[in-house]
Amino acid sequence: MTAAFLRTRAFRDIVVVLVLVFGVGSIAMLLAHVSPIVGFGALFDGAWGTKGEIAETLVQTTNLLFPALGIAIAFRAGLFNIGAEGQLVMGGFAAGWLGAQFPLPGYLAVPMVLAAGTLAGGVWGAIPGIMRARFKANEVIATLMLNVVAILLTTYLVTGPLQQGGANGSETGPLPKAAQLTHLFDTQLTWAFVLALVLAFVLRWVLQRTIFGYELRAAGDAPEAAKRAGIDLGRTALIAMSLSGAIAGLGGATIVAGALHRFNTGLSPGYGFIAIAVALVGNLDPLWIVVASVAFGMLQSGGIAMQAEAGVPKEVVSLIIGLVIIALAGRRVVASLRST
C-alpha cells in the first residue's frame, strides 16, 4: 500500500479529531459562559501542572491503554469486540476476589492477582468467540449483552454467595499489601503503566512479525482469501477474542491492584467504551494507540480539573469522545471485514 495514502488518511483523521476537540469543546465552553482559553487552560493545567497531576494523567492513560490494545487485537481480526468494559470488570473482579481470599507471599501475590484478571477477562472474551466460531452468532451483540451481564453477575457475587469480610456494598474485601502494585516516584502511578507500554510493543511485534499475527490480520483484512489459504477462521476468531478479553481483563486487574486495592463494581467509568475511541484514533496500531491513550488520558484527568477550576461540566469530555468515535467509525476497519 502506498505510504503517501496512509499518511494523508491519518493526517485527515488527526485534523478531524483536533477540530472536534477544540471546536466542540470551545462551543460547549462558550455555552457554559466560560472562555475556551480559560477552559482548555484549566484542562491542560489540570492534566500536566504538577507531578501528582502528571501521574494521574498517566494512570488514566494506563487504564485506557489496556482495553484499547485488547480492542485493537479483535478489530484487526475483523471482530467487533465492544465488550472490553465487561471483560475489564470480570478481570477486576477475579483479581480482587482471589487476591483478598487467598493471601499469598509477596513475590506470588501480584502475579496471581494479575494472572487471575487476565484469565477471567480471557474467558469473558472467549464466550462470544466460541459463540461466533460455533454458532456463527454475531459477536457485536453478544459482547454488548455480556457487558451488562458482567456488571450484574459481579454485583450478585460480591453481595451474595462470594461476599467477603470488610466489604461494604458492591465490593470485595481489601487486597493484602503484598498483592498491591508498588507506586512509582512517590505518586499514584504504578508499574502497571510500564507493563502496558511493554505490552504495546509486544503486541506490535506479534501482529507484524509472527505467523499468528499474520493470520489474524489476514482473517480481518480478507476473510475469504484467508479461508482459501487454509487459515481456520473460527479458531482465529476464538483466539483473537480470548486474547482481546485477556488484555482488557489484565487492565481491570491493574486498576484493582494499583489504585482501588479492592474490586468495586463501579471500578470503570466506561474505560472499555472510551478505549474504542482510543483504538480508532490510534489506527489500531499498538504504538499509535500508546500516543492516543496519552491524549485521552489527558482529557480524562484534565476534565475533572476543568470542571473544578473553570466551571465547565466534565461531561464535555465524554461528549467530545462520543463524537470522535462517530467521526472515526469509518476507519479502514470497515472496508472488508464484515463479509462473513
Binding site: 474504542i276 469530555v317 461528549l319 462520543g322 463524537l323 470522535v324 467509525a329
Partner: peptide
C-alpha cells in the same frame, strides 16, 4: 462507516450531551 462503532459513539455523546 461502521454502524456498530458509530452507534456506540452516539450513545456516549447523547448521555454526555
Amino acid at each position: 462507516v461502521d454502524q456498530i462503532v458509530a452507534g456506540t459513539g452516539l450513545n456516549i455523546a447523547a448521555l454526555a450531551g
